[in-house]
Amino acid sequence: MDKFTTIHSSAVPMPIEDVDTDQIIPARFLKATTRDGFGDNLFRDWRFHQDDSPKSGFVLNNPIYSGQILVAGKNFGCGSSREHAAWAIHDYGFKVVVSSFFADIFKGNALNNGILPVVVNEEFLNEIFQAIEANPNTAFNVDLEKQTFTILETGKSVSFEIDPYKKMCLINGYDDIDYLISIKDQISAFEQQQLAF
């Protein structure tokens, strides 16, 4: 996993609520057996017509918006557990997703792929959307070490929560699996005293 450093970037706004993982990556694109290339089909059916031509109204097709930060409405990533959604977002080039609320499984999948989910309150989320609307080039700063998200233009900054263990993993590029393998003896000892069924 990539190490997560400070991000300084403009952002792509998606003020839609309950964006489910079927929208992020439709099921028909889950047939791959590697983790690569999912970015091409990120938000496939919102982004492209059935003949593969781009839908001009969709934000990812609008050249005025770009950046490593995706800002979305509440309950982002609900639905299916497919990690392909996180792979698609990462592969497309996003490093941070900001919302007022994330679905649990998506949040875990994002963290396991070096994507930082930043939870801000509804009011601040609207401020972010307004700032981007006023100026699509508005830059933001995401500092994982200090756990702050800042709108650089106004200087307004909020702090966000992250589990200290997951923070350490992101900063160092560690996987959970490295840690679990390192405690294998402890796991074996636990197994010995488990019930037989």
Binding site: H84, I105, N112, D175, I177, I181
Partner: peptide
């Protein structure tokens, strides 16, 4: 339900 990274964790360590 879990993601694929977690599927790998469980396969590797239960």
């Amino acid at each position: 339900g879990i993601g694929t990274s977690q599927v790998e964790q469980v396969l590797a360590t239960q």
